[in-house]
């Protein structure tokens, strides 16, 4: 645990170098090429393939993914 903390502290130390830079009036980067999010037409392009996708699921019952009981 001490080793984990030491390594994380080193990383925080590295990224803390950023504090010294004056960024007054700098607009944070939103996209490397200044592109905005594209909108696409509201049309169905994908079909339901849940049975294919659920082949990778560890535990499925009646097409539902199972997890340990949440409410006792």
């Amino acid at each position: 645990m001490a080793d984990v903390l030491a390594k994380l502290s080193d990383i925080v130390g590295l990224v803390s170098q950023l504090e010294a830079e004056d960024t007054t009036d700098v607009v944070p980067m939103a996209h490397p090429l200044d592109q905005t999010q594209k909108l696409r037409s509201d049309q169905i392009t994908e079909t339901d393939e849940h049975q294919l996708y659920q082949k990778n699921a560890p535990l499925v019952e009646k097409d539902l993914y199972l997890v340990p009981k949440v409410i006792e």
């Binding site: 990224v15 504090e19 830079e21 960024t23 944070p28 980067m29």
Partner: peptide
């Protein structure tokens, strides 16, 4: 695990401006 922990730390409420936002500003520079 180290990167997930670092990532959640720099995005956490008290540190978001100092780390994540500042990093995106320096990235712009």
């Amino acid at each position: 695990k180290r990167r997930i922990l670092t990532g959640t730390y720099v995005l956490s409420a008290g540190y978001y401006d100092a780390y994540y936002l500042q990093a995106q500003k320096v990235r712009k520079l």
